[in-house]
Design a binder for these strands. Sequence first.
DNA 1: TTGGTATTTCAAATTATCTTAAAATTTTCT
DNA 2: AGAAAATTTTAAGATAATTTGAAATACCAA
Lengths: 117, 117
Amino acid sequence: MPPRMPEDIRRGVEEKGGLEGILLNVPSKKELETLAKIHSALGDPLRLRIICFLRVQESCVCLLREVVKIPYSKLSYHLSVLKNAGLIRGEKRANFIIYSLTPLGRKYAEDTCRRKP
Amino acid sequence: MPPRMPEDIRRGVEEKGGLEGILLNVPSKKELETLAKIHSALGDPLRLRIICFLRVQESCVCLLREVVKIPYSKLSYHLSVLKNAGLIRGEKRANFIIYSLTPLGRKYAEDTCRRKP
DNA sequence: TTGGTATTTCAAATTATCTTAAAATTTTCT
DNA sequence: AGAAAATTTTAAGATAATTTGAAATACCAA
């Protein structure tokens, strides 16, 4: 703990088991990295729009393209970001790929897509 | 809707009021931008660590520095990202600045800092 | 097998985010 | 007033994310 710091905060920390005590309740480096990756993936309006659309309707890429109005290659990139974060999955059906939310993705979508930040 | 697309998906969309019907349930551009900004701010392990620490203890910058072990100027930058997203606030007290979660920040911290992505 | 459609991949160019060190600001203490 | 501490700001450079368009894949249909 810093030699100089506000007394009330020093007391607060000590009551909670010191810095180490508090840090036990903070997720590990690896956990934080996973969480950060998920939040980064959600950190773009286009990708959020995709997530919120998939929340109500699974979709081929061709339909998503009408939802977000961007070229295929760009869309594909953003889908890969969401997929790498574990939020969506793509399943090949005929010569379409159908994207849908994973259980993780659904959890975040329910929290995020229902208005009021 | 695309001329060619899987029939089951076309039916799903039509049952839900067509593309427009579905898109009514998707947050507006402005809302998505706000949400994206919040998620972006959470999209970094260092910043998540700060959020999870503040969840249990409000703190001066000097203490946070020991939590994240980075130079002041870098820390200050990351605090500004969190502040601009509306997740934390800083209040000047003596010649310290005490950072704490906003209600919004607390909401996200509770969801995020309790393990299991 | 030929051709068409849906989608992804790649590499280059662009843009945004992050880091660094130094200088500036604000407040307190003497 | 002057010095010292806590923190932020700035501007530059470094790194990472995104966009673009062309080419590659994979699958289906004739």
